[in-house]
Nucleic acid binder design. Structure first.
Ligand SMILES: [Mn+2]
Ligand SMILES: [Mn+2]
Ligand SMILES: [Zn+2]
Ligand SMILES: [Zn+2]
Lengths: 143, 143
DNA sequence: GATTTTATTGCAACTTTGTTGCATTTTAGG
DNA sequence: CCTAAAATGCAACAAAGTTGCAATAAAATC
């Protein structure tokens, strides 16, 4: 409940009205290391009669306001996560998505940026603007 | 129709029965540069009364037999493509997916392998086995 | 070439994920 | 406290994909 004040301030900074739904969803997303699906979040908020449509809209609002982003899971639905934050509290938009082949959880991991971006091989006319690294393997939980 | 003989041989090599559906889908996938969705393929085969379930099953068969692979599109559904083939006719499983931000087409592009894989930064316990590069930008068609 | 075996196909019904329209409620600011 | 604007809940809908089952087509054996 001390958190709530911080979340409140944070939402207002983002130009959003503060609602109980937004505080709730923000808290769920804050308290996980892995990206969560819409139904994961619904499960974690059982008892708070949060409507599924409202949750979809809340997540989209978070995305359009730069609070969260979504990642496609291996079984074709969206997982949502807050933007990873650096040691110096700045948002890292250059990060990788680690997909555990065993538990299927997806983690947003900071990666070493010294690696150069893979360039298309002898292909002309492809102009790269952004990129996403998806890493597959085994996560610490499943090791 | 000269192609059909090649496809026929190819399917048998893969341990699959030769059916008109498989020949048809193989031909569609052969004759495109970009990954296609289930409904793209249905559209391109209109007139051949190919059932949607049969198409899903055919695509999955191609995947489990190493003929094709699927890529998640930006709007959360699967696009299917044959494995890209090298100059020396060997399958490249190390390639990038180029997503055009304008036309939303996805291309499988060979990439220079000299770039090292991005390693997780100071994170322990993540064992990377494979990876996928997703590159966003503008494709030659939309340039 | 006909027969048998086995895999593939088509259809209907269903599930899961996500969207739209609209009436009601909540928020923020004066 | 009052008001305008935004957020919410509900019902109905749409798209993507799956399951079970009976009918059909491929290929192996004779
Ligand atoms: Mn991420
Ligand atoms: Mn590919
Ligand atoms: Zn795991
Ligand atoms: Zn394009």
């Amino acid at each position: 409940m001390a958190r709530n004040k911080q979340y409140h301030q944070f939402l207002r900074q983002c130009g959003l009205k503060v609602t109980s739904t937004r505080l709730l969803v923000l808290d769920v997303l804050m308290s996980t290391r892995t990206a969560l699906s819409h139904s994961d979040i619904l499960d974690k908020t059982r008892g708070s009669r949060l409507d599924k449509v409202t949750l979809y809209r809340t997540l989209n609002t978070f995305i359009t306001h730069g609070i969260a982003h979504k990642v496609a899971s291996e079984d074709r639905n969206w997982l949502y996560a807050l933007h990873p934050i650096d040691r110096n509290n700045t948002v890292r938009d250059d990060h990788a998505h680690f997909i555990c082949d065993q538990c299927e959880r997806i983690y947003c991991l900071p990666v070493q940026t010294r690696n150069s971006m893979p360039a298309p091989e002898s292909e002309e006319g492809f102009v790269i603007r952004t990129h996403e690294y998806r890493l597959h393997g085994i996560c610490p939980q499943c090791h």
